[in-house]
Each structure stands twice: as structure tokens, then as C-alpha cells.
Write a protein that binds this DNA or RNA. Structure first.
Length: 423
RNA sequence: GGUGAGGUGCCUGAGAGGCCGAAAGGACCAGUUUGCUAAACUGGCGUACGGGUAACUGUACCGAGGGUUCGAAUCCCUCCCUCACCGCCA
């Protein structure tokens, strides 16, 4: 959610930035400001009346105390009409605030000015590419065929147990998954991220603070009996650690990481293009989160970008980094880098990570602040990124590393799983 | 699931209709002093939204929402949550 002060002080800048996301902000923001004038006027009136009522109540008390009952009673009558008025104004104020809030939550985050214009994923800016796209031998297969050939992943069994999108990993594959998780966590810890094992169900307040609720309600699994939600990403519980928190400035940047399973209903996205591991209802992911000083958040973003690039390099996967264009960015992001690995067998790029700076968009809802130099509470910047999500890493790895003899395990993972080849 | 207790500022914790934005202690910040892996003393120290160039000032907030009252942290109602014990249990 954008800050009111920002809209008030820099309306034109906000409009210009939002135009990059192809969002015509002028009408909404002007309406917000109009309501804001109304809100201030109403609050002024209300405050004046309440002030009078408070003064009156004090006088009544003193009169009673000194035995002047008649005079006290007289003042009492006066306060009745004040009360009526204040009630009306309170209601009016509540309505205005609600309208304003409703408008504000429809406005996406203002993208950073360096975000490229554009509407479709094709207009994302390819900012970096690394690694060699492997030439596969004749008869190379997509990962879902490899998975059944070596009995690694059983999609049908998952259907039996739960439903489509809940694969069962078996034997060496289960071990490889475990290895990846440990490898990612070890790397993150070494890079200064504090490992967190959060709950994988969250309450409504948490869902609201990171923006999954109320809009994206249908994308989360919901345990209605307890009113808890299965998390779509560790970002939700980990970021919510800092909900309603004022941290000390010298604690910044705060760096947390966590492994969790992630659950996404992905309603309405069934189809041929989501075969195999490409899109699942349950998957594993290690997430990195940073809470940064506003002056340092873009440095932090670059650091995270380099960090993720390092992981892919060590895993020997060809990858590219895209700076998302305005039209392809998420609602909450100010700048996003997507990482894609190239799957030689599917002959396409697969998104494996998304690293974003949210600036104050999340912290405004979270009320996540730090004490500035002047002792005032200032909203911190939040950032997060996948480091990494497993399924598409596994898919690319299986496909790119396949040989006639089996699937080669990247060197860095050998100590983690004790396997050099899967066959 | 049963029974009981309780939710107050960064933390501990008092307050039981007006003198309460809230005692006291701790933590924290600034200063003084003695000195040195620290102590003592003095002062400061909540958040949000308004008004004012500013000093300053108004209003709201003691889990949330209603109500009673001239006046509510304090009384009443509803909801949420936490803790303890018992039951069940990885």
C-alpha cells in the first residue's frame, strides 16, 4: 500500500512511476486526495467538539465535587448535543477513511524509474546471461519421462494420495531434494542469513499484512475450521515476524532465510504447458528475506541478485536474468529480477527465482519501522527472493544433465547426497 | 475437549469510574562524575492522525468491537487471543 504522505507530496511522481506499470493513477490518486481533504476537515471539526466535551466533563466533575450540583446538571445538558454531533462526525470520518483505504489498496506499488516500459513478458529486459546451453544426445527426454524411466518422481501416485500437482519423490530423487534444500540453506547461512523454521500455516492477520488477503484469497489453501491458511511462500511467515515491529537502525539490514513447503491452488491453470514439475500445488523452496534501510535497499537487491546468480553458477545451470518490465511485475514490487534456467529438453526458459525490492509497499501494511537518526519511526524497505525454488531446478537439472548412462549430479551436491550419477 | 486465570508502553508490572497517556523498576538515549571489560547521579524516553514556519498544541489509542455515564484502562455485553492444570496425543 502506498503511503498517503507520498501521494500528497509527490503526486506527479507517483503518476509517472505508475505509468510504467501501465496503470493510469491520476483519477484514483486525485480521488484519494479529495477524500483526504475531507478527512482532515472532518477530523478538525470532530477534535474541536471532543475537546469541548472533555473540558465540559472536567468542569462537571469539579462542580459536583465542590457541591454545586445545580450548576453541574446544567452543564450536563449541554454535553448531550455535543455527543450527538461527535457521533455523527465519527461515523462520517470512518466512512471517509474506509473509502480512502479501499481506493489505496487498488493502487499497485510505484516501480523504480529504471524499470523498463512494456506490457508483456517479451518486453522484459535481458540484463545478464551465463552458462552454456548444453547439446543433448539423440533421444534426450523431458524430465517427466526421465522421472518415470528412473522411477524418481511418481505423479500418478500423487494423484492417488492427494491430487494433481502433488508429486511423490522417491529414492534418489527424494535424496536429491533433501540435498538441494540443505545446500541452499547452508549457502544462505554462509551469506549471513539467519535460518528460520516458520509455521507453514498462518492466520488472517499475517495473510493480510503481506498482501495475500483479501484479494488473492482463492490462491491459498484455507483451513476453514480453524481459519488458517497454508503459506504460498515462506515470505509470508518470515516477513510477518516483523509485523508491528520497530527495529533498531543498527540492526539493519536484517537477513533471514527459511525452507518451507509452499502451497498454491493455482486455480484455473491446468493444461499441457504445466506438465511435470513446471507448475505444482505443493513444492519446496528456500526463501531469502531482507529488511533494509531505505538508502541501502537497492544495494541489498543487487547483493541478492548476485547471491542467486552464484547458486545457479555452482549448480552448473545456464541461466539468464531479466529485469521485469512494468507490465510483468507483481502488484507489490518496485523492481524485480527474474532468474530463468534453460531447459534443453523442453527448449525453453523456466523461471526459478524472482528477487524483488518492495520498498515501503509491504512495510506500510506491516507497520515495520526503524528509529531514524532523529528518533522518528521510519518505514523500512523489504526485499525477498527465492533461493531457490526446487521443482524447476530439478527439472532443468534432470534434463540438462542427462546422459545415456544416467543423470549427472552437479559437483556441489555430491557431498550432500552422496550420489554422482542417478541411474 | 474440560476447568481456572489473564490480556496495560521496548520488557517486567501497578492502577479497580474524574487527580491516568498511565506509578515503579529494567532496557535505551543524552549529560555529570568516579574511573575503566563497569558503577553512581541528573534529565529524556510510546504510537497514529490533525493544526502551526516554529516553540508548541488538539484528538484518539491500556487485546478488538459495541454499550452504560457529564466523564471509562477501570463497570456491562460480544468476539479474539494467551497462560496454567486435567484429558487425549507425535
Amino acid at each position: 500500500m502506498l503511503q498517503l504522505n507520498y501521494i500528497r507530496e509527490k503526486k506527479d511522481e507517483a503518476i509517472a512511476r505508475l505509468a510504467i506499470k501501465n496503470f493510469d493513477a491520476r483519477p484514483v490518486l486525485e480521488q484519494v486526495l479529495e477524500l483526504d481533504n475531507d478527512r482532515r476537515k472532518t477530523q478538525n471539526e470532530l477534535d474541536a467538539i471532543l475537546n469541548e466535551a472533555n473540558t465540559l466533563a472536567k468542569q462537571v466533575g469539579e462542580l459536583y465535587k465542590s457541591g454545586k450540583k445545580a450548576e453541574g446538571d446544567e452543564l450536563k445538558n449541554k454535553s448531550a448535543s455535543l455527543k450527538e454531533n461527535s457521533k455523527k462526525l465519527e461515523e462520517k470520518l470512518a466512512v471517509i477513511e474506509e473509502q480512502q483505504h479501499k481506493l489505496l489498496v487498488t493502487v499497485p506499488n510505484t516501480p523504480n524509474m529504471q524499470v523498463p516500459k512494456g506490457k508483456t513478458p517479451e518486453e522484459n529486459e535481458n540484463v545478464y546471461q551465463e552458462g552454456e546451453i548444453p547439446k543433448l544426445y539423440d533421444g534426450a527426454k523431458p524430465h517427466w519421462e526421465l522421472a518415470s524411466q528412473y522411477d524418481l518422481i511418481d505423479f500418478e501416485l500423487g494423484v492417488k494420495l492427494t491430487g494433481a500437482g502433488f508429486p511423490v519423490y522417491k529414492g534418489k530423487m527424494a535424496r536429491l531434494q533433501r540435498a538441494l534444500i540443505n545446500y541452499f540453506l547452508d549457502k544462505a547461512t554462509a551469506a549471513g542469513y539467519l535460518e528460520i523454521q516458520p509455521p507453514i500455516m498462518v492466520n488472517e492477520a499475517s495473510g493480510y499484512a503481506t498482501g495475500q488477503l483479501p484479494d488473492k484469497e482463492g490462491q491459498m489453501y484455507h483451513s476453514t475450521i480453524d481459519n488458517l491458511y497454508l503459506i504460498p511462500t515462506a515470505e509470508v511467515p518470515i516477513t510477518n515476524i516483523y509485523r508491528d515491529v520497530i527495529v533498531k537502525a543498527d540492526q539493519l539490514p536484517i537477513k533471514n532465510c527459511g525452507y518451507t513447503p509452499c502451497f498454491r491452488r493455482e486455480a484455473g491453470s491446468y493444461g499441457a504447458h504445466v506438465r511435470g514439475l513446471n507448475r505444482l500445488h505443493q513444492f519446496d523452496k528456500v526463501e531469502i528475506v531482507q529488511i533494509a534501510h531505505p538508502d541501502k535497499s537497492y544495494e541489498a537487491l543487487e547483493e541478492m541478485r548476485n547471491y542467486v546468480a552464484g547458486l545457479l553458477r555452482e549448480l552448473e545451470l545456464p541461466f539468464r536474468i531479466l529485469k521485469l518490465c512494468g507490465g510483468d511485475m507483481s502488484f507489490a514490487s518496485a523492481l524485480t529480477y527474474d532468474f530463468e534456467t534453460y531447459s534443453a529438453a523442453q527448449q525453453k526458459w523456466l523461471e526459478v527465482s524472482s528477487v524483488s525490492n518492495f520498498e515501503t509497499f509491504q512495510s506500510n501494511r506491516l507497520k515495520l519501522r526503524f528509529k531514524g537518526a532523529d528518533g522518528k519511526a521510519v518505514l523500512a524497505h523489504t526485499l525477498n527472493g527465492s533461493a531457490l525454488a526446487l521443482p524447476r531446478i530439478v527439472a532443468t537439472m534432470l534434463e540438462n544433465n542427462q546422459t545415456a548412462e544416467g543423470i549427472r549430479v552437479p559437483k556441489v551436491l555430491v557431498p550432500y547426497c552422496g550420489l554422482e550419477i542417478i541411474n
